[in-house]
Design a protein around this nucleic acid. Structure first.
Lengths: 198, 198
DNA sequence: AGAGAAATCTTTACACCGGAAACATTCCGG
DNA sequence: CCGGAATGTTTCCGGTGTAAAGATTTCTCT
């Protein structure tokens, strides 16, 4: 990458894009400030002006990861379908995204590498979570003696998808298609809650 | 750490113990071959004889993590209790361990840092999983049209605990005690499956 | 338009890191 | 008891993140 001007023009977004590219191609260990800067055609200290330090860069990458994650789930929702079917599709999209971008998803949940207080990250993460939450809202988790079971149910749903996806990612679950299929868990999930009106 | 003999005597286990200590005190970024070797009182290349490289050391740490994880769950099981109560206790112990040793648990599920083919790691990981599996075996997940629902149920249970624990660890779940309490999810979990004979 | 301030990028230097290679010391089995 | 194997050290190398100081461009204000 050569450039003619002293200033890059849009270095910040270029670094984020190249950073995600490296992350997906080589994983975290392949992502260094120097290799990243070289790819963009800039000195290895240039990123400091935009991200402060490595931690800031990784935080920006994680936030972008949440945005892409949300977009991927959103894009996979069938427009005319029941809530249960939409939830199923969202969970399927969730797991598929993790499987397609394991390093990026891992970074998104690495508090040691990412600044959890970043407003950008918090907003992107919350927006992503809202997709699942909205779909789970239509399930009835309540019991008379547990007024907060609804919220707890949403957390459970998230825990289930996140846990399954990360276990797959870490190679702990052999992907025997009949037992571990993504669809399997997405099919069975809505049975956790009794649908309203059932 | 000073020593009088040229040979350490039991360097391998000393490195594992010190490695876990550093991991828990400072996290992964604080764990370097040099800092570790210095703490044990040995040159920074000495670990190579026992672990080959950094990857081998981290693999040994992860395997030890699985052993401690299993021991922690096992120790927390009430001796005279129903299967449902034991499962509850095991899940509680699972989450508690992750919360007490976040960096160690994170390493245990980091395929980029750990050799997933290590026999030692595989055995330790499997032994740990068996605790949950045995307890979940007494739940009846089966439906007539899904002969493999039992296995799928065990995977779901593991996904749920693992997902909840790691979401907590990553700070994504605010620990509002009434909604996110560890006990809450442990209480609600057995309802996923219909107990045999209910 | 022009001058000073701010933003952006480079160069240089430093401490730390993991790993390879050659060497020193100790242990252990024939 | 001796020679090979195991264990540990020294030295060196390329690579890393970051701090500091200087160069270049753009922005802002008058």
């Amino acid at each position: 990458m050569e450039r003619k001007t002293y200033h890059h023009g849009d270095l910040k977004t270029a670094l984020v894009e190249a950073g995600i590219d490296i992350l997906e191609a080589e994983g975290l260990k392949g992502l260094s400030l120097r290799s990243l800067a070289a790819r963009v055609g800039v000195s290895h200290t240039a990123p400091k002006n935009h991200f402060g330090a490595m931690r800031g860069l990784l935080t920006a990458l994680a936030a972008e990861g949440f945005r892409r994650h949300a977009a991927h789930m959103q894009a996979g929702l069938p427009p005319d379908a029941s809530d249960a079917e939409k939830l199923q599709a969202a969970m399927h999209g969730y797991v598929a995204f993790v499987e397609a971008h394991p390093h990026l998803y891992g970074l998104m949940f690495s508090p040691d590498l990412v600044d959890q207080d970043s407003p950008d990250l918090i907003e992107a993460g919350h927006a992503s979570y809202l997709i699942l939450e909205d779909l789970a809202r239509h399930l009835d988790w309540s019991r008379k003696d547990e007024p907060e079971a609804q919220v707890r149910g949403e957390i459970m749903l998230w825990s289930l998808v996140h846990g399954y996806a990360t276990l797959r990612q870490s190679g702990k679950l052999p992907l025997s298609p009949r037992t571990g299929a993504v669809l399997g868990i997405a099919e069975i999930a809505p049975r956790f809650g009794r649908r309203t009106g059932d």
